[in-house]
């Protein structure tokens, strides 16, 4: 079944904060399934672009279409995992039940399976906010996947987590992508990008500088900015 949110078309997306343009006319088309990693130096506008894509920020100008849909309507096919997991002040299981009340009612077994998939089966009745950072983010991911999204957005979701959690999350994302979910990942962890990306979008100064298959990007980046970034230079 083709992904209903593909292709993603972004045209002339502009966003101004204060009097500074932070997104200066982004043109982008994502039409391949798999995992797209958005890379770029700090302050390039990666997270803002992702938030516009999810509808959390209304751009000052420009259009986004996902398949046949525009942004607010597409939201229910999307899910997002944030850098800082935000969990309700309830137990692990109650957090999942809140995100998917129908599932909690009709087949509560699915919630336990979802927790099992992120290795949290033994913590079902723990207060969610007592979990470690890695456990909290795994719970966030399980919660995001409950709605079976067609598009999963992750904003630096594994930054500063323990390696075991990172590994678990990465393998889940790969499996999810193999099942047809489009995954877009904002990351400035080059190692992660190399492990995960099918496609790379490189952003710099609020614009798309480069886009292409991951292999090509990492072996022969076209723009000097991308070259410098991959060489580990500080860019600003």
């Amino acid at each position: 079944m083709p992904n209903p949110l593909l292709p993603i078309r972004i045209s002339d997306l502009r966003l101004i904060k204060g009097d500074r343009p932070v997104l200066g006319g982004v043109d982008l088309m994502i039409d391949t399934p798999g995992i797209t990693v958005i890379m770029g130096p700090n302050g390039a506008g990666k997270s803002l672009l992702l938030r516009c894509l999810h509808g959390l920020i209304k751009p000052d100008q420009g259009h986004i279409t996902l398949g046949q849909l525009k942004v607010p309507e597409s939201r229910s096919w999307q899910a997002m995992v944030f850098q800082q997991p935000v969990l309700l002040r309830r137990t692990v299981l109650q957090n999942l039940a809140f995100a998917a009340p129908e599932i909690a009612k009709s087949s509560p077994q699915r919630l336990l399976q979802a927790l099992d998939a992120v290795n949290l089966a033994e913590l079902v009745n723990q207060p969610a906010r007592m979990l470690s950072g890695g456990e909290q983010q795994r719970l966030s991911l399980a919660r995001a996947l409950l709605s079976k999204p067609a598009l999963l957005l992750l904003d630096e979701a594994t930054a500063s987590l323990d390696p075991a959690s990172v590994l678990l999350i990465e393998s889940l994302l790969k499996a999810q992508s193999a099942h047809g979910t489009k995954v877009i990942l904002v990351s400035h962890d080059q190692g992660q990008a190399r492990r995960m990306a099918d496609e790379v979008v490189f952003i710099s100064n609020g614009q798309v500088a480069e886009q292409g298959p991951a292999k090509e990007f990492f072996t022969s980046p076209e723009t000097p900015m991308a070259q410098a970034y991959l060489a580990g230079e500080l860019l600003f």
Binding site: H54, L56, Q78, F98, A99
Partner: peptide, 12 residues
């Protein structure tokens, strides 16, 4: 302030 983004994302 803490929950709004997450609630939006979950459609709550």
């Amino acid at each position: 302030q803490e929950y709004s983004d997450t609630f939006y994302s979950m459609g709550v």
